[in-house]
Design a protein around this nucleic acid. Structure first.
Lengths: 250, 250
DNA sequence: CGCGTTCTTGACTGCTTTCAAAGATGGTGG
DNA sequence: CCACCATCTTTGAAAGCAGTCAAGAACGCG
């Protein structure tokens, strides 16, 4: 897993306990050492998928629950005239393909944006020793739903400038939870066309807006790396509030 | 329950087995007579909420799972400058407030659009006799997620005309599942401003677009009633495909 | 070093918003 | 039964944000 990540994301080799995906999952809920071992074991069976490959297809039978260990993947919906809308991204540590019903169909197409590493998500079953895992998956699902709602609000009421700021802050927060962002800087594999497809804009307009932000000293995206240079100002533009789905304990 | 529905929605008294909410839930999964009785019993304890009341508030502790028996409610996200974006609607038979994690927070504010009737959703627990209910709730959740994804695609890539057509077809399909739409005609309590807030448009532009559609003989909304006069043509405008989250059995 | 992808730029079009005010509608109380 | 008020719908003119089309520059991979 670590090797895969290093090859794929071009990051420096890190100690085992900082594996981004596991760090993010462990942040969702307290996990027992047995559960951490189960995750490690699953990660050992990871498969690598090249970029631009479909993992699921909308309307086809759902895949089994899967953990994204490394890479970026996106959910997408295609239109008959060739347009497409990216519904959201899964980042390292995200769990995809979870369904609780019989004969579930995938409700969206999932495609790898970068070469990615995937493994089957350990099944907590009804094992009382794995309640932490169940909780982590539940929190993951709640975050996923919250992200959808935020994306709807972003597309419905934000202009291009706000959309990009808000979305970058969200990506940054999520990557930071996996230890993949430092000081506002993170690997950013999306082209301007992909950003446009995610935010309901044309790549041309994304380009002009990013240039404006660059001139303002707000951020800088180049060479596959995003640098958010003024997080406080970005946050104030859209009144950004961190993702939260669970109440803090007293 | 039936009385409440009649008073609230101004519909004609219907036989018990056509109660819209229960009809819709029963369509999600096969239910045993025990489960149907449980639903009936829950419905008997329904409470009525006036219009424009908040049922949940984003960031507050989540409410317990609730069935909407009658009326329309909407999920909404507010912005600091007074703007708001409606994230989606719950219609009779929809289950709201479901969360599987500890100390869950509501991830959106839910507000009644019309006077509404609500009851607590029967808990299937781990009772094997209530697997149908569990399945129905799971399918309900899958539909909810699918609706979110469709809404994202709608807002991101459709123009005003397409957004309205696509959204009305979706509302129609959902109401029809509860027996609340006949021949393309259904009670429609949303003002043009509400439609605009849901579709990311101004009420002025919603007005102009609806007028265009009326002139084209496509549909007619007036007096709180929507009449979709040419469903085939509407469907072809956006290549509408019915909501489906479960594979048809062989 | 060469080619394909991605980024950048310019001019022009057009959908949607904004602002303001005038009608229509529906429910309520006199 | 009608007057009245709040809400909702309709209309017009003007401005603006974002899209479209096309072509050139830069980048990165093999």
């Amino acid at each position: 897993v670590r090797d895969a990540r290093c090859a794929i994301m071009n990051t420096k080799l890190a100690p085992i306990d900082t594996s981004p995906a596991l760090m993010r999952i462990a942040a969702l809920a307290p996990l027992s050492s047995e559960e951490l071992r189960a995750l490690d074991g699953a990660a050992a069976t990871a498969r690598t998928v090249p970029s631009h490959r479909e993992i699921t297809q909308e309307g086809a039978p759902n895949v089994r629950p899967t953990i994204l260990l490394a890479g970026w993947v996106y959910r997408v919906r295609f239109f008959s005239d060739g347009r497409r809308q990216i519904l959201g991204f899964a980042l390292p540590g995200d769990v995809i393909g979870v369904a609780h019903q019989q004969r579930a169909l995938a409700n969206n197409t999932i495609v790898t944006l970068t070469p990615s590493s995937l493994c089957q998500a350990p099944d907590p079953g009804i094992d009382p020793d794995r309640s932490g895992l169940r909780e982590a998956y539940a929190v993951n699902a709640a975050v996923e739903q919250l992200l959808s709602y935020r994306h709807i609000a972003r597309l419905g009421r934000f202009g291009a400038y706000e959309r990009i700021v808000d979305w970058l802050l969200e990506i940054h927060e999520r990557l930071a939870a996996a230890g993949l962002a430092h000081n506002g800087t993170f690997a950013f594999p999306a082209t301007q066309e992909v950003v446009g497809d995610a935010l309901g804009l044309t790549s041309v307009h994304v380009n002009r807006t990013l240039q404006l932000m660059r001139r303002e000293g707000l951020l800088n995206i180049s060479g596959g790396v995003a640098r958010l240079l003024d997080l406080p100002r970005m946050a104030s533009v859209v009144r950004y509030s961190p993702l939260q789905v669970t109440a803090d304990p007293e």
